[in-house]
């Protein structure tokens, strides 16, 4: 019976949330196919994949070695391709993160199999069928895979992790040739553990030119902290140098799918909207009642952000404490 394997991602030995998303998608697809869901964990020695069974894995393959703490593309790809190729899998699901976007196509190339990138849904309908936003969110492809296995990368936050208890057994994963000459990841610079990435966060608080200057972004940071979210930015403020490009949301920035997106002092230009189309709930604060952002926002407040945002931050804090 064809199964599905999720290739999980860790940072510093801890599995990331996107891993549980990939696993949840793998479990659902495996159920539709009547097969098993497996997981592959690549990381440092002693990595704990203990709760993987909670999210539906029947089997967990582990490649644990301190040389695999950071993403070493060549070795990760060798291990993953060998593992995916070792069984009769219908699909391998990889999170579409910076790591997964590099790893997933390598697996497909090694196995000479089809690849669908950054999908927002994977299902079974006479074969593996996926939804892929293209043209920067201006259209969606529905694609059917015609060969097995296939590799798909799954957009962060597109699938909510769902618990599905299984008695997962741990097994040794395939190994990589260690003496190949390969590119080597030396380090991760400026790891800013406090800051979540906009593309992965389940809440994003984004600010635009309405903030007037870089210093006022403190208001956005405070609200982000109160809701436990990441800070995002429009291109106008990135171009002005108030925020870094890594925070830009939109067509030429990041595409985000959080549960909750705040657009504060952002007009809602088409290129910005392209990045937030798959956000679940959008809140807009803007002083202009005709701003296009209100056409896509689920909830809006018309008003001066310098009055609305501090109050919002304060009341959310109070509500959390109370």
């Amino acid at each position: 019976m064809a199964g599905v394997i999720a290739v999980l991602e860790q940072r510093d030995g801890t599995l990331k949330r996107v891993s549980y998303e990939a696993l949840t998608a793998a479990r659902a697809l495996a159920d539709a196919l009547g097969g098993e869901a497996h997981a592959l964990v690549i990381g440092p020695a002693g990595i704990d994949a203990g709760d993987v069974g909670t999210y539906g894995a029947d089997k967990v393959f582990v490649a644990a070695d301190d040389a695999l703490t950071l993403y070493q593309a060549d070795q990760y790809a060798q291990i993953a391709a060998a593992q995916v190729g070792s069984d009769d899998y219908a699909a391998a699901i990889v999170p579409a993160t910076a790591l997964g976007k590099d790893l997933a196509p390598r697996i497909a190339a090694k196995l000479d199999c089809p690849f669908a990138s950054d999908v927002t849904s994977v299902r079974h309908d006479g074969g593996v069928v996926v939804t892929r936003p293209v043209y920067a969110g201006k259209a969606d492809y529905t694609l059917k895979v015609t060969a097995t296995p296939c590799v798909v990368s799954l957009r962060p936050n597109a699938v909510m992790p769902v618990e599905a208890k299984r008695d997962a057994t741990d097994e040794q994963a395939a190994a990589a040739e260690s003496d190949r000459t390969a590119a080597k990841t030396l380090e991760i610079k400026q790891p800013d553990r406090a800051a979540q990435d906009v593309a992965e966060a389940s809440v994003v608080v984004a600010g635009g030119r309405g903030l007037r200057d870089a210093e006022s972004f403190k208001l956005i940071e405070d609200l982000a902290e109160a809701v436990g979210g990441a800070v995002g930015a429009s291109r106008a403020v990135v171009d002005a140098g108030w925020r870094s490009h890594s925070e830009q949301v939109g067509q030429t920035g990041k595409v985000v799918s959080p549960n909750l997106y705040f657009a504060i002092g952002i007009s809602g230009a088409i290129q910005h909207l392209a990045g937030i189309r798959t956000a679940k709930t959008i809140v807009a604060v803007n002083k202009d009642p005709d701003a296009p952002i209100f056409k896509v926002a689920d909830y809006g407040i018309v008003g001066d952000l310098f009055e609305v945002v501090p109050r919002l931050t304060q009341e959310i804090k109070q509500a959390k404490e109370g």
Binding site: A116, A139, Y141, T146, R277
Partner: peptide, 16 residues
Amino acid sequence: GIEVVNLAPPAERKAG
């Protein structure tokens, strides 16, 4: 190994 089923404009967000 990939076949196009269809290409469609994104679902409109319903007005809030």
